[in-house]
Structures are given as C-alpha cells and as structure tokens.
C-alpha cells in the first residue's frame, strides 16, 4: 500500500478533529469538554498552517536568497483564530469555575439532575 505522505498533515488534521469532536460530545466532565474543544480547534490551526505551506518554501521575508516562500496569509489568519480560541477557552473555563461554585460539581449528569430538581 502506498502512502501519500503529502497528505500526512491532513490525516493528522482529520484524526485530531474527530478525536476532539468525540471528546466534546462524549465527555460528561465540563473541563474535559473544553479540552476536547481545544483539540478540535487545534486541528483547524494545523489545517490552515499546512494549507499555506509550500514544499521547500521559506518564510516570506524580503531577501535576495529567498525565491520560493510559503503563503503567509493562512498563517496570519490562524494567529487570529488562535487568539479567538484562547479567548473561548478562557471564557469556557471561567464559566466552569462559576458552575462549580453554583452547583458544586463539574459533571454534566449531576448538574442536569440538580437542574431538574430546581423548579422555577
């Protein structure tokens, strides 16, 4: 079986994406869900970075030595996405802290039970 190593990055992306997605859905622990969400997002970062990479290309700097360089735009974009991801993670964790204060638990099923008991 021949493996197309050129697509290696993309296989990683798919694996990370599915793993992260699975953790988000399957985990009942709110913190672990956030971890899953991070893995999920990281896969997208890798995806963008791979997309902009040109094989054998250098960093896009103005220099006579550099003729072939990678596309900087996706890399720049993903900086923004990373910032957004960090903000999301921070906010998510902050919410988890508040939820733990309010419910005394970070397990989804326990919280669900408390919520059902709470009327109005």
């Amino acid at each position: 079986m021949s493996v197309d190593w050129g697509l290696f990055n993309y296989w990683i992306v798919v694996i990370l994406m599915m793993a992260g997605f699975y953790v988000v859905i399957a985990q009942g622990n709110l913190v672990k869900k956030i971890v899953g969400l991070n893995i999920f997002q990281v896969s997208v970062f890798v995806f963008y970075i791979s997309m902009g990479k040109v094989e054998g290309g250098s960093a896009p700097i103005l220099s006579d030595a550099v003729t072939l360089y990678s596309n900087p735009l996706p890399h720049v974009l993903i900086l923004t996405a990373i910032v957004v991801g960090v903000a999301t993670t921070a906010l998510g964790l902050a919410l988890v802290v508040r939820i733990r204060d309010a419910y005394g638990s970070v397990e989804e099923d326990e919280i669900d039970r408390y919520e059902q008991e709470q009327e109005d």
Partner: peptide
C-alpha cells in the same frame, strides 16, 4: 445559576 450552564452549552455549540 441555570444561566451558567445555558451559557456553557451555548459556548460549546457556538464554538463548534
């Protein structure tokens, strides 16, 4: 306090 869990769920779904 249910607003917190509602916000959390929205965060997860919204981010996805």
């Amino acid at each position: 306090r249910r607003a917190l869990t509602a916000a959390y769920r929205y965060l997860i779904m919204g981010t996805i």
